[in-house]
Design a protein around this nucleic acid. Sequence first.
RNA 1: CGGGGCGUGGCGCAGUUUGGCUAGCGCGCCUGCCUUGGGAGCAGGAGGCCGGAGGUUCAAAUCCUCUCGCCCCGACCA
Length: 572
Amino acid sequence: MYMSQLYSPTLRETPADAEIVSHKLMLRAGLMRRSAAGVYAFLPLGLRVIRKVEQIIREEMNAIGGQEVLLPIVQPAELWEESGRWADYGDEMFRLRDRQGRQFCLGPTHEEIITALVRSEVRSYRQMPLRLYQIQNKYRDEMRPRFGLMRGREFIMKDMYSFDSDNEGLDESYWAAYKAYARIFARCGVEAHPVEADSGAIGGDVTHEFMVLADSGEDLVLFCPQCEYAANVERAEGVRIPRGGDEQPHLGELAKVATPGARTIEQISEFLNVKPEDCIKTLLYVADGQVIAALVRGDHNINEIKLRKLLGCETLELADDETIFKATGAPVGFAGPVALSLPLYADYAIEHMVNAVVGANELDQHMVNANLDRDFKVKEFADLREVQPGDLCPRCEGRLEGARGIEVGQVFKLGTKYSEAMGATFLDENGKEKPVIMGCYGIGVGRTAAAVIEKNHDEDGIIWPVSVAPYHVIVVPVSMKDEAQAKASQNLYEELKAAGVEVVLDDRNERPGVKFKDADLIGFPIRVTIGAKSLEQGAMEIIIRRTKEKLVVPIEDVASTVKNLLKDGEIR
RNA sequence: CGGGGCGUGGCGCAGUUUGGCUAGCGCGCCUGCCUUGGGAGCAGGAGGCCGGAGGUUCAAAUCCUCUCGCCCCGACCA
C-alpha cells in the first residue's frame, strides 16, 4: 500500500472529546472516527486491526471445535418474551417496530436466537457437544458510552455458545473456552488475567472474566499475592472471622447522644471522635416492595449484588427519603438498628462489633454503646460488604490487593436457564427428555484492540504487536525527490510485498520529520529508513518501533532481516 | 436518570462577564518559490447561516426562552 493513497487521516492535535490514551490514539492515528455517542466508523487501518483480532479469535475457536455462524442483528420480540428478557432488559435494549407494528430489537447478545436455532434441530444426545460462535455487531443503549471502543453502544463481539448433554460436557466446553481465551489474548499481545466474577443479568453460576490490568479499566479486581485467588469486586468474597473465645468484652451502657447535622459516617465519627469502623451503617432498601435494612460496618461499602442474592428478590433499590422517614421516624442519616421494626440483614463484620455507634432513628440523634443481641437482633448474617484491598484472602492467609482492569472477555456456565425457558430439549441415552446444558463465552473485539493500545504505546504513539499490527513494515525514503532513494525504496517495497510482508511505502512528498511522526503514531512495528547517507554506503536503516533500536543493514540483506525479525509473530 | 461542563472553518482554541463584528489566532488545506534525517521557511489564497428555533434590541457569537448534540463524574454493564 502506498501511503499517498492510504486513507489514514492522522491528527496533530488530540480531539477534545477523547479521555483515555487508546481512544486518543485511535483517533489521532486515523484508525476510526466517531459517528454518534458510542458509535464509531472504522477506517482502513482500524479495520485491519479489528480483522486481525477477529482472525486470532476465529482460529482459536475453530481449534476447540467451534463452528462459525452469522446470526441476525434484528431480532423478533417474541423470542425475548420467551426467555423473559424482553421485560428484564429495560432501556438498555434498542427497540424498533416494523411497518406492521411488530416489535424487534437490535441484538444486545444472542442467547435467545441461538437457543431457538438449536432447539428445533438438536433432538439427541448424539448431536452434542455442539459449539457455535459468531463475531458481529451487537447493540446496547448504554446509559453512558465512553472511552471510545471501551464502552460503545454498537460494538463488535465474539460469542460462542456451547450445548452439552450433561454437566461433565459443560465442564469440558467451559474449560476449553477458558484455555482458548488465554491463548487468544496472549497472541494479541496483552496479558489477560482470569478472575472470578458475577454473572449479572445473563444468568448462570460459574463465570470468569478476563481482565487486562490498566488504570483506565472500569472494573476493580482484587487478587491475592500469595495464592491464585482473583475476583472482580462485584464477586470477591468477604471473610467471616469466627467470634473470639471466652473473653467477655465490656459492654457499655446504651445511650443517646446529640449529633446535630451529622448524617454521614465521616461526620459522625469526626463529631464523636470515634473511628468509622466503630460505627454501623444502616441502609434501607426496598426489595420487591418490602422495606428491609442492611447493616455494614462504617468503613465498609455494601455490595448490592450480594444483598440481592441473599434476599432472592427481583428488584432492589435504596429507599427514598419518604420511605426512610416512614420506616425510621427520622430523615436520612439517622437510621439505626435499635428498636427498628424492619428485617435486619447484617454483614459478618457486624458480629464482632462492641459498643458501636448507630443512628437513633431520631433527627440529630445517634446512640453509643449499641451491642448485638442486647440492643438489637439481626435476622440473618451474610457476606454483604464490598471487599477492599487489604482485606483477608478468602482462600489463604494473604491480604488482598486491588487493581483496575479492562474486561476483555467473560466465560459463563449458563446451565439450563435458556433451554428450559425456551424448550430446547433432547433425548438422553435412556430416551428421557432433558433440557440442553448451555455455556456462553464472549470477547469484546474492539475493546481488546483498545486494551492492546492501552498496554502498548509511548509518548509518540501506538506500538502494535506484530500479530495485530495493521501493517508490519513502513518503508520511508527521506526524500522522494532523490531518485536513488525513490528507486531503492520502491525496490524494497516490491521485494517485501512479494515475500508476503504487509508493507506500506511512504511515497508522500513530505519532509522526513512528518513521515517519521506519522510512522510512530500509527505504530508500524518496523520502519525501514532510506536516506542519502546510508545509501551511499550501500545500507538502509531498520528501526524497531518498540525499542527505537536502529540496525544498519546492507541493502541486499534488508528484506531477509525484516522477515527474520517478524518470524515469531513478535519482535524480540 | 442525577451532578458538572462544552458546542465558533477539518483539528485545537480566543472572543460571551460589560451587545457595536467587516468574527479572530495556531495547526491543517490550496498555489508558487524554497527546503528535505524528527510535525521547516517565505509569499499569496480558500474555507465559518458562531449547534438549531423563537424572542429582546437601532444592533446579538454575546442577553432571554425552548430545543438538539457532545464530553466528564455518579448509579448500571461486555
